Simulated assay, not measured.
Amino acid sequence: MKYLKQLMIILGAYFLGVILELVFKLPIPGTVIGLILLFLALYFKIIKIEMIEDICEILISFMSFLFVPAGVGLMTSFNMLKGKVIAFSVIIFISTIVVWVVTAYVVKFLRKVC
């Protein structure tokens, strides 16, 4: 029952984000809005970390499994990617670097703030 409560908190943030996206016709996906809402609730201590900690550990342990559908989707559209391997490799390399840099600055900022 503890895990169900914790999952409901996370799903509540998700559904609230999706609802806000639909109602206000926002250009940001509802899933991202839900993550931002969950982050803000944690930051302002509306939701305490202990309230969702256990289910988060379980979800993180299954995270690699959640990438399987994306990999299968990539494999099914492999014919579309033929001849564009170099372009996709460059895009993947650049986006990876951008994600690393942005993540580093966000962590640096959050360490100063918290």
Rank of each mutant, 00 (worst) to 15 (best):
F15A: 15
L16Y: 04
L16N: 09
L16C: 14
G17M: 07
G17N: 02
G17L: 09
I19W: 11
L20H: 13
L20S: 14
E21Q: 14
E21T: 12
E21A: 12
E21Y: 08
E21S: 13
E21F: 05
E21P: 00
L22G: 06
V23R: 11
V23A: 15
F24S: 15
F24M: 15
K25T: 08
K25W: 10
K25N: 12
L26M: 12
P27E: 01
P27Y: 00
P27M: 10
P27H: 00
P27S: 04
P27T: 09
P29D: 03
P29K: 10
P29W: 04
G30T: 01
G30Y: 10
T31N: 11
T31K: 09
V32N: 12
V32M: 15
I33N: 08
I33A: 11
I33F: 09
I33R: 08
I33D: 07
G34W: 05
L35D: 03
L37H: 01
L37D: 03
L37W: 01
L38V: 05
L38H: 05
L38W: 03
F39D: 11
F39P: 08
L40W: 09
L40F: 11
A41N: 05
A41D: 06
L42K: 06
L42N: 07
L42C: 08
Y43C: 01
F44D: 01
F44K: 07
K45M: 05
K45C: 08
K45T: 00
K45D: 06
I46P: 06
I46E: 01
I47P: 06
I47F: 12
I47N: 02
K48R: 13
K48V: 12
K48N: 13
I49E: 08
I49M: 07
I49K: 06
E50I: 14
E50P: 13
M51Y: 01
M51P: 07
I52Q: 02
I52K: 04
I52A: 06
I52H: 02
E53R: 10
E53L: 10
E53Y: 06
D54W: 03
I55T: 02
I55F: 08
C56R: 05
E57L: 08
I58P: 07
I58F: 00
L59A: 04
I60K: 08
S61I: 06
S61V: 03
F62W: 10
F62R: 05
F65D: 11
L66T: 09
F67H: 05
F67T: 11
V68Y: 04
A70H: 10
G71Q: 02
G71V: 00
V72W: 03
G73P: 01
G73A: 11
G73W: 08
L74K: 02
L74D: 07
M75G: 06
M75W: 06
T76G: 11
T76K: 15
N79K: 13
N79I: 12
M80Q: 15
M80W: 14
L81G: 13
L81S: 14
L81K: 12
K82W: 11
G83M: 00
G83F: 06
G83V: 03
K84Q: 05
K84C: 03
V85G: 04
V85Y: 01
V85W: 04
I86N: 06
A87E: 14
A87K: 12
F88I: 11
F88G: 09
S89A: 15
S89W: 08
V90R: 07
V90W: 07
I91W: 02
I91V: 15
I91G: 07
I92V: 15
I92K: 13
I92Q: 13
F93P: 00
F93D: 02
F93Y: 04
I94W: 09
